[in-house]
Structures are given as C-alpha cells and as structure tokens.
Design a protein around this nucleic acid. Structure first.
Lengths: 210, 210
DNA sequence: CCATTACTTGACCGACCGGTCATCTAACGC
DNA sequence: GCGTTAGATGACCGGTCGGTCAAGTAATGG
C-alpha cells in the first residue's frame, strides 16, 4: 500500500502514463477499429515512447483486453448504473437507457462527425472469429448487461406490470436489439435511428417454453 | 454479345480468374475481416498472381465493393427470394427467414468452427467510420432488405393479419433485430442463439405516429 | 548513500502491407 | 498472318506493422 502523497505523485489521474495510453487507445479503437489503429499511433497520441508502451502492456492484444475492462467499468458506473439502479418503474428504465445511448452517440457524432457505435459490438464482430480470448471477454460484458435487463424484467413481472415470460431470453433479445439498432444507426451515421427504433425494445417478448 | 463457345472458353464458372478472386475474397472477408485479409493471401487462395489481381481490381477497396455486390446478389436470389417471395402467409415468412439464417450460419460454423455472422454487418461496423463509399453501399443493401420486411408487413396489414402500424419503422426495427441476434450469436460462437431469439422478431411493433 | 526497482528513450528487427511495373503470352478481330 | 489487346508473371517499391532491446534516468526502500 502506498500513501496518499505517493499516489498523487505517481498516479495523478490522466497524467499517469498507463492510463493515458489506455484512454487514447480506447478512443481510437472505438472510433475506428482494432486492426486499423497501430501501436505507434497510440504512442504518439498518448505522448509515450514505444518501449514505454511495452513496459505497461505485453502486447496489442493485452492492451485491447485492458481497454475492454476499462470501458466496461466506466459503462457499469456510468449510464448503466443510471439507467438501471433508478427508482423509476422498471419498464421506464428501458426508455431511460435508450435515451442515454442516444445522447452518448449523438454527442460523439457531433464531435467526431462519425458515429462510433458500441465498442463491444464493434470489437465482437471484428475479432470474434480470430481471438477466442477477446471473444470470451466480450461475451462476459454482454452477459453482464443482459443481467441488468433480466433483473429489470423480473422486477416488472414480480410487480405485475408485465405478464409472466421468459425473462432470460427476453433480456437477451433486448440486448441483441440494442446492439442491432446501434449497428444500423452507425451504418447510417445517424444517431436518430436509436431514438426512432429504440422504444420498440419494450415490445420484445419471449414466452416461457412449456 | 459473345457466342456460347467463347463463353465456355473465357468464363467457365469459377475457373474464370476474376470470379475466383471474388469468391475467395468474399469467403475470407466474411470469415475474418477486411483489414485482416491481405491481397497476397487472396491471390494465393485464388491461385492468381498479384499483377493479375490488379488487372481486374484497381484497389482493395474496389474489390470489397465488388464483394458486397456479389454477396448482395446471391443473397437476393438465394434465401431472401425464398423467404419473402413465397405464397406462405406473410407472418410465417419471417419464421422461414429466421430458419434460413440459422441453417446458413450453422452450416458455416460446422465447417469452419467459427460463426462468421453477416458479412454486411461485419463490414458495416468495421468500415463505417473510415469509408463513406462503402458505408453508403452497405446502407443500400440494408435498405433493400428493409424493403422486403416492409412489403411483408404491408401485406399482413392489408390482409388484416396484423393491426395497422408504422410498417417502415417496424421493418427497420426487424432488420436491426436480425443483425443484433446475429451479432450476439457470433460473439457466443453459437448459431442456436438465432433459433432461440429469432422468432421474437414477430413481436416487434412500432405504432404510427399521430 | 547506495542498491534496487520503475519507468523512459529511441534505434532497430524481420515481416508484411497495398500497390506498381516492365515483360511476356496468347487469343481475337481483321 | 498480323496488329491489337486482354491477361499473366513475378520482381520490386516505400511504408508500416507489432515487437525487441540495450542503455539511460529518476524515484524508492533500506
């Protein structure tokens, strides 16, 4: 355990080399793709030497893993927490989440000119056939998100707002739909697609198999 | 117009150099990614020299465009035609299409060991932020698919099977959902996801705005 | 104060990238 | 038969890729 002063010295947030690399890489991977972003480019963006980069990350692959963890964390503590841990009625949380997704993509589009979409979805389609380790990690991220949906649905069923259903399957379907509309919106480079199609997420339903 | 014999000579299907390049590239792009597949590798796979490749395609980008056209054609004349131009009741066509998507992915997975997903969705997420021309082409492909959904929904509404709704928006939502479940299935490397989540496509509904 | 460790520097590596080109071969139109 | 052209060949280009490494500097712990 290091004391506070040494923390301040060696890890002031965002002047810290490792996290500078991490956030630069995250931004670049998100806005482009894994393959299209080079180590040198990341180093330039983070004002770091290549040898220094390899002091913190053993390989590009490991960097990507760290980026996924990093984004998943920010996700969990950011808009996922906001959307789901609300004292809003369960079903309305879905609307809240769609809105949050929209504003995020809208803001990014306004700044960069291009809609980046979902980092996890992007990486999943690019890497799933080539990197089972990364695929597994992305799977875990998706599973966690699905769990949030599921908990919301369970609560709604419990409270009588929704008729009984296969909440696990429906939650998975909702996650798939969310990724799908983000994919389509990105292809159209138009975040509004999320606003238009998003609310229909509440119409998805998978019955209990019997 | 060339006569039959000269066709046989110069374009016997799949011994023809250009189409050999095209189908090799399609397979590789589909199973991996645009960036990960190199020209040299495609040439090797198609048993073609590099200079010969550049006789037919001015650049890798142009090859990708041709691949998209090629796949869109086979799509349109293949399982899209089967799924939608049926004399099945409109709503059942959706089930038929889900089944077709499943069997396709299942077959590919059994052969390659990895679920390739949807070439268009894959390319869309990988390239949309970097190549507006390709993005536009993928958009056109998606629009055409959406048109099929829409026609089906219109017919169902017309026939009284479905209550009136915003068929355009709902059709787009269905396409998004399809892409979403393929994305998730690919991430899990499990085509069965399509079977489980697919039928819920019929529950999607976007009302007419008034 | 010294040894150790954490971190930084930048040159360097072989491999591969997309793309070019001069040269050759063979088929076609006339 | 002959000129033209479509197609095939493979060496070659500069640039970039992910990754290595020996040497240096600065902070830390004892």
């Amino acid at each position: 355990m290091t004391d506070r002063s040494s923390i301040m010295q060696s890890m002031s947030p965002d002047t810290d080399t490792r996290s500078r690399i991490l956030s630069t890489a995250r931004e670049m991977f998100h806005g482009r793709s894994y393959a299209d972003v080079g180590i040198q480019e990341i180093c330039d963006g983070a004002r770091v030497q290549k040898g220094s980069f390899y002091h913190f990350f053993p390989s590009k692959h490991d960097l990507a893993m760290a980026v996924i963890d990093n984004m998943a964390d920010e996700w969990a503590h950011g808009f996922v927490a906001e959307s789901f841990d609300q004292n809003l009625p369960p079903v309305e949380r879905l609307d809240y989440m769609i809105d949050a997704a929209y504003y995020w993509q809208k803001a990014a589009t306004d700044i960069e000119g291009r809609m980046p979409g979902c980092l996890f979805g992007n990486l999943a389609l690019e890497m799933s056939t080539r990197d089972d380790v990364m695929r597994a990690k992305l799977n875990a991220v998706f599973d966690k998100a699905m769990g949030k949906f599921r908990a919301t649905l369970d609560e709604a069923v419990q409270g009588g707002t929704l008729a009984a259903m296969d909440t696990e399957a429906t939650a998975t379907a909702m996650l798939a739909y969310l990724e799908g509309i983000i994919l389509l919106a990105k292809t159209r480079n138009d975040p509004d697609v999320i606003l238009i199609l998003g609310p229909a997420i509440k119409t998805l339903r998978i019955e209990l198999s019997h």
